[in-house]
């Protein structure tokens, strides 16, 4: 996370998965937010999802998914981008705005603590819940030695 690019990749991935209402509520607590203009979008479109033959071989086109993108510029001149799965325009706009705000060194820490980390925790928790359910279905094979002796 030391590299600024990987730090940005991380928060963008968290924002891409954020629920709109939650993100909106978390951002409201960061008021006052700067004015911003939407440079592009928010617009829904498609991304072609690729797989690999055999899992690791040559790429092939599996099918498309819906994606919404948005680019905003804050009055302070910071440009934020978002590409988020699905067709929720508000979500893309809020994600782009948050991305721009995260680029403001005066806000990064507060946003990290009060927006990104809580969203990430929620997402991790969901993953852990699914993993725990999957783990309960793990097969424990027992060798039936008693039947042979």
């Amino acid at each position: 996370m030391d590299n600024p690019r990987s730090a940005r990749q991380r928060w963008m991935s968290v924002l891409a998965r954020a629920e709109t209402d939650r993100l909106r509520a978390l951002l409201e607590d960061q008021a006052p937010l700067p004015e911003y203009t939407v440079l592009r979008g928010p617009e829904a479109g498609l991304v072609m999802v690729r797989g690999r033959a055999g899992g690791g071989g040559a790429a092939f086109n599996l099918g498309e998914m819906t994606v919404t993108r948005c680019t905003v510029r804050t009055e302070t001149g910071l440009i934020g981008h978002a590409y988020v799965q699905g067709r929720d325009e508000k979500r893309a706009e809020l994600a782009a705005l948050t991305d721009a705000l995260m680029l403001d060194p005066g806000r990064t820490d507060a946003l990290e603590r009060q927006v990104i980390t809580p969203l990430e925790c929620q997402q991790e928790q969901r993953k852990e819940e699914r993993a725990a359910k999957a783990a309960a279905t793990r097969v424990q094979f027992l060798a039936m030695q008693t039947m042979r002796t």
């Binding site: 479109g45 999802v49 690729r50």
Partner: peptide, 13 residues
């Protein structure tokens, strides 16, 4: 809908 991009091949591993 317009197509924006294609993805990196997904890593099923």
């Amino acid at each position: 809908l317009p197509r924006f991009a294609h993805t990196k091949p997904v890593d099923t591993a």
